[in-house]
Amino acid sequence: MKVKQLNILKAHHGDCCIIELNNTNGEPYIILIDGGPRENFRTSLVHDLDKYKKIDLIILTHIDHDHIGGLLEYLGSSIADKHEFDKIIINAPNLLTVNNEGTQISMNEGLKFEKVLKEKRPEIKVIGNVTTETILDKFLPEGINIKILSPNNIALKELYLNWPKKEESNTQISIEEIIKAREFDVSFHELASKKDKEKSIKTDFVNASSIAFSIRVNNFHGLFMGDAHSSIITESLTKFYPDDVPVVFDYIKLSHHGSKYNISNAFLDQIICFNYIISTNGGAGRSKHPDRETIAKVICHKNMKEEKVKFYFNYPIKTIEEKTGKLFKDDEIKLFEYSEQNQIII
């Protein structure tokens, strides 16, 4: 099994990625990770999935609007009828999703997603209650290894404890914290030295429950972090790779669109990687991404000094800066490489 390409869709302020693999016979194996917000269904998903006959594995990392909305629209549409489906990995006791008001969770939309799977896509095998204790080997073809690095049992339990037990009118739970100023006048060196800022599982249970995973095939070792907490992933790396720390990855999709709350020096101590993917158009509402601090921590870390780090943005930096404000000084741009592209050929 080999990875042919990564397609990081222009999913607005959200996440949506296609991993295209081929087995030894040249047959495709397609993994769809998240679906972006609702508007991503028409702007990207319809076009980018059109060439595939079968979607072998869907991974819904968590229930934020900017990850599940487009997937809900896609699976509920007649357009999805042209595709075959095999499996979906999802942690959601009632398949809770998000409404159109951005940073809110709505029970009614979750019930709709559950209904879509049961009534329109009953052929999809649901793999649920996935934690770092889950072994996926029996669900995957030979030659592909996926390790679940988040959530742990504590984070998944917290999500389920906060899950509404029945449909209620106007049931909403806040899931986003307003991101503050960009600290444009603070140097990369100072930002890299800042104390890590991760939120607690209790106050950020939705992101803490996000599925993060590593995937290894013959020609590729990648880490897809969803919106997961870096502390949970750090713990898992120590557990799964006891003799290989720091673990070498070819590509890492950074957590939560490059948020400073989802990166830490403790995590960076555990990895070596020179290619980082950041999925965002700059953010939505008052939540802006990526954070300068995230970029600084990565490029200044001792494990990433052998060569220049490269960031892959799925939108042009100028487009991102229309929402975030100017991100980089001229002398900072020289410290790393970057690419503005959606398809990464492996």
Rank of each mutant, 00 (worst) to 15 (best):
D86P: 02
E119V: 05
I211C: 07
K10G: 03
T61A: 09
E39S: 11
I33R: 11
E307I: 14
E306Q: 15
E142Y: 13
G35H: 01
V126I: 15
P93L: 07
K180D: 13
T132G: 02
K297Q: 05
L254Q: 09
T171I: 11
F139M: 09
L161E: 14
E322C: 06
K323I: 02
L111G: 02
Y251W: 14
D331E: 13
F336P: 08
N207M: 06
D244T: 08
H62F: 03
D48R: 13
L254H: 02
G69P: 13
I105Y: 01
L96P: 07
I146G: 12
D48I: 02
I58T: 03
M1H: 14
H256C: 01
I105S: 13
G325S: 06
H221D: 11
K87W: 01
N22L: 14
N129C: 05
E340G: 06
I68N: 05
L111K: 09
S169Q: 14
P242Y: 01
L72T: 03
H229W: 01
V206G: 02
I79A: 00
I90M: 10
K199E: 04
I90H: 07
T324A: 06
L21T: 15
L161R: 15
L268F: 01
D34N: 15
H256F: 07
F311M: 08
G128F: 08
N281P: 01
I178T: 11
F184W: 05
K54P: 06
T324N: 05
K157Y: 04
P164Y: 11
R42P: 00
I179R: 03
L57C: 11
N342Q: 13
E168H: 07
K202I: 15
G222M: 11
D64V: 05
D204M: 06
D244S: 13
E109F: 12
L21M: 15
I8G: 09
N23C: 07
K334Y: 11
D66H: 12
L156W: 00
L327C: 02
E109P: 00
I30G: 08
L335I: 09
E114M: 14
D66P: 02
L159K: 10
K180H: 02
P290N: 07
E123Q: 03
N94G: 09
H62L: 07
I124T: 10
I346Q: 09
I124H: 01
L32C: 08
P93N: 09
D330V: 09
T134F: 00
L191C: 05
M304P: 06
K334E: 04
E101S: 07
T294S: 03
R38H: 12
R292A: 04
S210L: 08
G143F: 10
V3Y: 06
I211L: 13
R216E: 12
I233T: 02
P151D: 14
E322T: 11
F267L: 05
R292G: 08
H65V: 10
A208R: 10
N218Q: 13
